[in-house]
Design a protein around this nucleic acid. Structure first.
Lengths: 308, 308
DNA sequence: ACTGTTTACGGAGACCGTAAGTATC
DNA sequence: GATACTTACGGTCTCCGTAAACAGT
């Protein structure tokens, strides 16, 4: 074994390469897979992680099975944000001079899409030469898409307190603009015993089965009152709203959704929350450095925003 | 010259070392000074910056005089946050096992100190063996002090909207707890023409001379309505409140201060703001991983907080 | 026995320092 | 002409790959 907690070495290399390796190992759960992902041999990965462990004086990943230790988990979280910020820096600088011929926008499935439509119609009429491409993305990967420069802006949605921002990324990493807020409703099967309630409290449903749809409802997972209750949960990993509603109608569980998304759906009753301490919120994410052309689209989008 | 904007190279090294070098160059305004600071030759620094410029395809610093370009400025901002986060990671991991014999707290000069005093009295009575050391710090360096592990917690103050957090660092970097809020007042010389006003609007004083005290009032600089008005400003870089008030009394300018700090001072009139859209706020900053002993002190401090 | 990680070792190359070159004040 | 940065070049040491040892399953 090694002399953990000795920490004789102070401030040695500790370069980005090593952090990337740690992160890949933690994500993949395997040195071999991480090596393949990064284009190294697993020996190299082993050495990089070993170097980190030596520097910090803590074991970072358990071997066999490969699992992060608490220290490794913590470091991996920091590493993830550092790498994200590096992506942002790269994206920002890479488009500093260039003026792109097209503007690419990503939209999350439940993000208020009428805003995007209206804004793009306006952009189209005033600037018909500008090509705009729209892509649907998972709210979990929306930040990374903007950060990496895969898209120029993203309409992201999630659950937050009223007038509170979604905390999607580090402060100052990306520019975010509030676009819309909608009340949250609990979607229940039409024959559910609570279907006639006027309003409903989340606590009432604390022990009820929920359908978690991480690819659809952004921050719902963390905010929903479902602790670690395996067995009672259904996870729907698709981006298809009708499918999710069908699951609800079939009685597999309740779902927390923005009101507009489940109005007048057969077999599903939508009941507003008692105390609207949580709302569904849509924000526009973009890099902080934008080209004039992107700026125009984003400005139009912002002008359409019902908030502020 | 070089082929800027060509950017043939994609994803080359770009390690932390280079970012540190860029940051030092930007801070020092000199390759030579940066080299001395980092323990390299200036040749090495030159090569590191050149490597970054090659990778990004942008010139990052102008030479002669050495000044960051817009791209360099942007990258340096990212670099600063990355290095800060690395400091936090190091601090967190380094104290994961250890249980320190003393708890070190930093206090900013205008941060509500009575909170600290009361909390420490309580800590002292319940845990007399625990050694607590207190240091006064500049609000500008408070975050770095906590991040680097130089202190375990810091009482920081600044100006923010009511019930809004000070945005001192990236979200999730450090834990922050609201401790107190105090109204802001404009400190004027006693013979100032506006001295008899009940309340005052910042816009009224937009063109008046201000005394800026960055070492005292944290976020006041950015929030105060003084744009770039050279000549009309006095900068007091000390941490001494009486000195600042003496400057105000001498008629050198107005200052934006928390009300408790300038109550009943000879020669100075304190006038509350018209619309209290800004308040003086004190927050407690600490690492997100705390040892049980630190946790106790922090808990007691939090319990003393008048907010929430 | 086999899969997967560590350790050993050697080579290619990155990185820094010395020193000469060059531009700006 | 002096100061300050850049470029050239060579040595060193890092870092990765190959391969062997090793440890769980």
């Amino acid at each position: 074994m090694m002399f953990w907690h000795l920490s004789i070495s102070d401030t040695y290399p500790m370069e980005i390469r090593d952090l990337r390796a740690l992160l890949a190992v933690v994500r993949c759960g395997s040195f071999t897979a991480a090596a393949k992902e990064l284009g190294y041999t697993q020996s190299a990965i082993s050495q990089q992680v070993a170097a980190l462990e030596l520097e910090f004086g803590h074991q970072l990943v358990q071997r066999r099975p490969v699992r992060p230790t608490p220290a490794g988990q913590r470091l991996a979280e920091h590493a993830a944000r550092i790498l994200l910020r590096l992506d942002v820096a790269r994206s920002e600088l890479s488009q500093l001079g260039h003026e792109p011929a097209e503007v690419r926008v990503a939209v999350c499935p439940l993000a208020a899409p009428q805003l995007l439509a209206a804004a793009l119609r306006e952009v189209r009429s005033t600037n018909p030469l500008l090509r705009v491409t729209i892509r649907s993305v998972d709210p979990r990967s929306a930040v990374a898409e903007v950060a990496s420069g895969a898209v120029d802006a993203a309409l992201v949605d999630g659950i937050a307190g009223p007038d509170e921002p979604l905390h999607l990324a580090d402060a100052g990493l990306l520019s975010s603009t509030a676009m819309a807020e909608a009340p949250l409703v609990v979607a229940l099967p039409a024959d559910h015993p609570l279907q006639n309630r006027e309003r409903i409290d989340l606590d009432v449903l604390a022990d009820a089965p929920w359908i978690v749809a991480p690819a659809l409802a952004g921050g719902a997972d963390e905010r929903a009152p479902t602790g670690p209750r395996p067995g009672l949960q259904v996870v729907y990993d698709g981006k298809d709203l009708p499918t999710l509603l069908a699951l609800v109608a079939a009685g597999l569980g309740a779902a927390l959704l923005p009101a507009p998304s489940c109005a007048r759906v057969d077999g599903v009753t939508a009941i507003p929350l008692c105390s609207p301490r949580l709302v569904h919120r849509t924000e526009l994410l973009a890099l902080r450095t934008t080209t004039p052309r992107q700026q125009r689209v984003i400005e139009v989008l912002r002008a359409k925003a019902s908030l502020r």
